[in-house]
Design a protein around this nucleic acid. Sequence first.
DNA 1: TCTGGGGTCCTAGGACCC
DNA 2: TCTGGGGTCCTAGGACCC
Length: 344
Amino acid sequence: VADEPAWILHVDLDQFLAAVEVRRRPQLRGQPVIVGGQGDPTQRRQVVQCASYEARAYGVHAGMALTMAVRKCPQAVFLASDSDAYDGASKEVMDALRGFGWPVEVWGWDEAFLGPRTNDPESLAGEIKETVAAKTGLSCAVGIGETRQRAKLAAHFAKPGGIYRLDASNWLPVMGERPTDALWGIGSRIARSLTELDLHTVAELIDADPEVLAARFGPVNGPRLIEIARGGTESELETGPREPKSRSRQHTYPEDLIERADIEDRLRVLADEVSGDVLKSDYTIIRVAVTVRTASFWTQTRSRSIPLGTRDPTEIREAALLVLDRFTITRPVRLLAVRLDLRT
DNA sequence: TCTGGGGTCCTAGGACCC
DNA sequence: TCTGGGGTCCTAGGACCC
């Protein structure tokens, strides 16, 4: 086995949140299902978290306002987001994947990388799909590559429910002429900056001057963009439990907050909620950050270091209020957030 | 029809110290 | 009076991802 080639498989669940909801409500199968917020499409300021493929056919997609989604697809079933249910379903899937005995790196609720050694990754991918379906009732796509980047993009081509391989032999033919933001790790902003350097496609980025990219994007990010374009680097999967670096709680209020006392009250609630999350475990808080977003979407974050660290919820709450005092708020407040940075 | 919530990593300037 | 480097911490913000 040790002399068989190493592969990365990326397992990506299909329409995960909607699929979990359909699994426990079989009568919804085949219907447009939209998960988001409290499941009430008349409520403002809530967005689609996941749309089933039937709903996507009407142009509904994640991030869209629920009020927009109900206009595009009035017959859809709208459901509240239920993170406990998704946590549980995710754990079922990851346990099924670990059952294969290969290293597993969990990537969010609905994605994972596997690191097998095999001469036949397609057969293994097929077994994975069957096992996940049998044990959890959920379907997934599997991407195959030598790196995370290739496996991740391969899974994209495999969706929904398929298997696709993106390796050294077909990376350039498949990806070379695509825009740079087709890559995992390059979004719209970097793609636009690259365009200003006359770099439009993956193939052009591969041949770009590393010095030019370093000058534009920094000493780490610049060269990394070229690596991404080449298909990424081979590196060990991280299979251990993730140590969180921060925990946050944010809320967009259905009606803007006007009164100072109201803003402070809401901030206290957020601070206490996120403190409660963190203090259940053994973490020490070393920084408290507060974000304010006004009705016009102007958004700023300020923070305060706690050099010795604390686990005292009162101190955290008061630190949040002190940070709030450093803002000059003259507009109605749409969103507040509290983030706690943790000692690593 | 205005645009959620929860994360990670990187960059850059200024303070401060040696 | 004018000047060097190196290092770390703090803070704000940008960008990406699920």
